[in-house]
């Protein structure tokens, strides 16, 4: 019984936490919606032929003057808000997840190696991490963006915006992974199973990835969740600052920036609906992150 409870404790906690269930639901629905956007969206925001200016500025269906076809209304171009959000979430998630993957591979690799080898290698990695910390996420991202503007010819800049943005976000997030992986590796290095593996003469690569890595996945998973939220926020912020994505390939951040024009006019939904959606998505991811943290570090519960 006790063993059973222990094994399925995570599941049990999940089933008994309404916040976690709702958060998971929001996150999963968003992921699905984003993944299948081309098939379920009413219009394609990239395809000018699929929407019409005549449908512009229609309010959501519960307000007067709405068209029941557009449940959450339309923007000034006549784009269906739901479609815009689905495609926006798609782009935001693609950027967020790719940036996260790059950051995770780079950060975990360096962190593991730093924790394993210690000494000079560790010192160098940590000093680089210090420099990266002195230049926080937004700054790094802005800087990379600025450099890209400086060295890339204007003609291909537009095409590379997504790549630049992804790289910028990835570079600003790797430190979290590296520091967490390093700290956890240090703890594991003192464990006797690692010493046993080293004593046997196993190759460092095997010790790091076969023995240590599975034991530090817990904290890394937490960082991964929290950083996915950061990546989405970062993308939105950069797009808001006008140096992220252009208006014709709208991510969630771009939608909000465009919506800002309507802050003072009556068409509030163009600003607040994407904003609300972004916040709901990030809150959900953060709730899941907190939930994972509780599971992996029950003492803080």
């Amino acid at each position: 019984m006790i063993a059973f409870v222990k094994k399925y404790e995570g599941l049990w906690l999940f089933v008994h936490s309404p916040a976690a269930i709702i958060a998971a639901l929001v996150a999963v629905l968003t992921f699905l919606g984003a993944a299948f956007a081309p098939w379920i969206a009413l219009v394609n925001p990239y395809d000018l032929a699929s929407f019409s200016l005549f449908d512009g500025l229609l309010p959501p269906t519960w307000l007067d003057g709405a068209n029941p076809k557009f449940i959450l209304g339309t923007d000034d171009q006549g784009r269906d808000m739901i479609s815009a959000i689905l495609y926006g979430a798609r782009l935001s998630l693609v950027i967020g997840l790719s940036a996260l993957s790059i950051a995770a591979v780079l950060g975990v690799g360096l962190g593991l190696a730093a924790g394993y080898y210690g000494g000079r290698f560790d010192a160098i990695v940590m000093r680089i991490a210090d420099v990266q910390l002195a230049l926080p996420a937004i700054l790094t991202a802005l800087l990379i963006d600025g450099i890209a503007r400086g060295i890339l010819p204007a003609s291909i800049q537009q095409d590379l915006r997504v790549a630049v943005l992804t790289l910028a976000i990835a570079l600003s997030l790797w430190v979290n992974f590296a520091r967490t992986a390093r700290a956890s590796t240090f703890v594991q290095m003192n464990k006797e199973y690692v010493q046993a593996a080293i004593m046997m003469g196993q190759r460092p690569i095997r010790v790091m990835f076969v023995h240590i890595l599975p034991n530090i996945l817990g904290p890394l998973l937490v960082i991964m969740t929290v950083d996915l939220a950061s990546a989405i926020l970062l993308e939105a912020t950069l797009s808001f600052l006008g140096i992220g994505l252009p208006a014709d390939s709208p991510s969630l951040g771009t939608l909000i920036r465009v919506g800002m024009q309507f802050l003072l006019s009556g068409e509030w939904w163009i600003l607040w609906i994407p904003t609300l959606f972004l916040v709901a998505l990030v809150v959900s991811i953060n709730i899941l992150g907190d939930f994972l943290r509780d599971i992996f570090n029950p003492r803080l519960r």
Binding site: K191, E192, Y193, Q195, A196, M199, H211, P214, N215
Partner: peptide, 16 residues
């Protein structure tokens, strides 16, 4: 040369 360690909770890889 093989070794038996002090702490049986840390000498076996808990993920294996």
């Amino acid at each position: 040369i093989q070794m038996v360690f002090q702490d049986p909770y840390s000498s076996l890889n808990s993920r294996h």
